[in-house]
Amino acid sequence: MRSGTALAIPRLANHVVIGIDIDAKLRYGTGVQEITKPDDVKNVLAEQAVPIAARNKMQFGFASGSSDFQPELAVALPPDSTLTTVTVMQFPDNESAARAAAEFDETDFAVAPDQNERVQLTKYPLAHSHWRPGTPTIGSALAHGNYVVNTFISMPRPDRAELTALVEKIYSAQLPMLDALPPLSPEQVLRLDNDPDGMLRRVLNPDKLGVPDVSMLATYEAQGLLHFQTDRMAAKDLYADAERVAVSSAYIASTNTYTRGIAQSFGKGTGRTLNGGLLFRTRDGDSARSLWSKILDAPDPGQAPSNVPDSKCAEIPTDRYVKDFVCAVRYRNYVGYVWSTQLLDTQQRAAAQYALLANSQ
């Protein structure tokens, strides 16, 4: 069951909005959260939402945060930032989704019923929304077929019109993306192909991971990968030639503990592991060459691994307590990108990734 869900969540993430789909100012990613079971819902909604998710048989979900302010690892964003958290969950049918959306909002409203005020969205009258006058936040939940889209927004000013307009922009961007994603039955979740496009057998897997994992062993479309990036506008341009990407021991996909269940809980971005890698597949060799030239545009000629064609390496600046070496290799329409805290280790990973590509059919 867990392995099937770990395949379903990346599939869903490819159809979840990021900030730049809503407003170009929301270019920074502030974190992601996988939802594999009802108990995970408390990381993005209130604790009281957990029994609602369980009672309505929530199957899985994915949450992504965005902001107009670039986050720093382990540092909360300033209060004058605009933050959005978008959570999408799939339920077994339309009825359970509609019931869950109403209950999520009602439970949150009941925390302070004498202070909260219901908000009617003109464009989405079926959405359940409320805010607390004088507070620059708003929460909303909307059922869309088998899906529930939950949004929480924090802005610098307690302006109801601005808050409401941003909620409607989120729904306008998100709902068409879900229309293109047929929901999965519980049985279909179990029957998802682990590696339908041969990416996982081609990506370097030094940790010998065998179970799918959202941030440690998974494949994504370009949209899915952008959730894990800090500057998503720059990343979208950087990875424009990529059709698919496999991640291997790459990211730390969890929210922090500043405040659970609201947009501010996504405040530190998504951390990259100390040792990991990405494998990109592009349309053709020319696209691979273009991507390879961009993702490491200032290599150190003295650091390229010996006897590995189309490879380059460099030490990149970091504010971490260890050094950060990266290498990129290219083979036909694939580009591998690996990193480690030691140059020799990174070079060996690059050579191994190239060998995997050259020997894969």
Rank of each mutant, 00 (worst) to 15 (best):
R2S: 11
T5E: 11
I9F: 07
N14W: 04
V17L: 10
I18D: 09
D21S: 11
D23S: 00
D23E: 02
G31A: 00
T36C: 05
N43F: 06
L45V: 06
Q48C: 10
V50Y: 12
P51V: 00
I52W: 13
A53M: 00
R55W: 07
K57F: 01
M58K: 02
F60R: 14
S67N: 00
T84S: 15
M89N: 00
S96C: 00
A100D: 02
D105H: 07
T107L: 12
A112F: 05
P113D: 11
P113R: 15
N116V: 06
K123Y: 08
H130K: 12
W131H: 11
P133L: 02
T137S: 12
I138Y: 08
S140I: 15
S140A: 14
S140T: 15
L142M: 05
H144Y: 12
H144K: 14
F152G: 04
P158Y: 07
P158D: 10
E162K: 06
L163F: 00
L163G: 01
T164I: 06
L166K: 10
D179Q: 11
D179H: 06
A180R: 05
A180K: 03
L190K: 06
D193W: 03
D197E: 12
L200R: 08
R202Q: 09
P206D: 14
P206L: 12
L209M: 12
E221V: 03
Q229V: 09
T230N: 04
T230R: 08
D231N: 10
K236Q: 13
A240H: 09
I252Y: 10
T255N: 14
S265W: 07
K268D: 11
T270N: 03
G271M: 07
N275P: 05
L278F: 09
L278G: 08
F280A: 05
R281Y: 00
G285T: 14
S290H: 03
K294I: 13
I295H: 08
A298R: 11
P301L: 01
Q303Y: 01
Q303V: 00
V308F: 13
S311T: 03
K312I: 05
C313V: 01
A314T: 02
I316E: 10
I316H: 09
P317V: 04
V322K: 07
D324N: 09
R332D: 13
R332G: 03
N333D: 05
N333T: 01
G336Y: 00
Q342R: 13
L344C: 09
A350F: 07
Y354V: 14
A358Y: 04
A358R: 05
S360M: 01
Q361M: 08
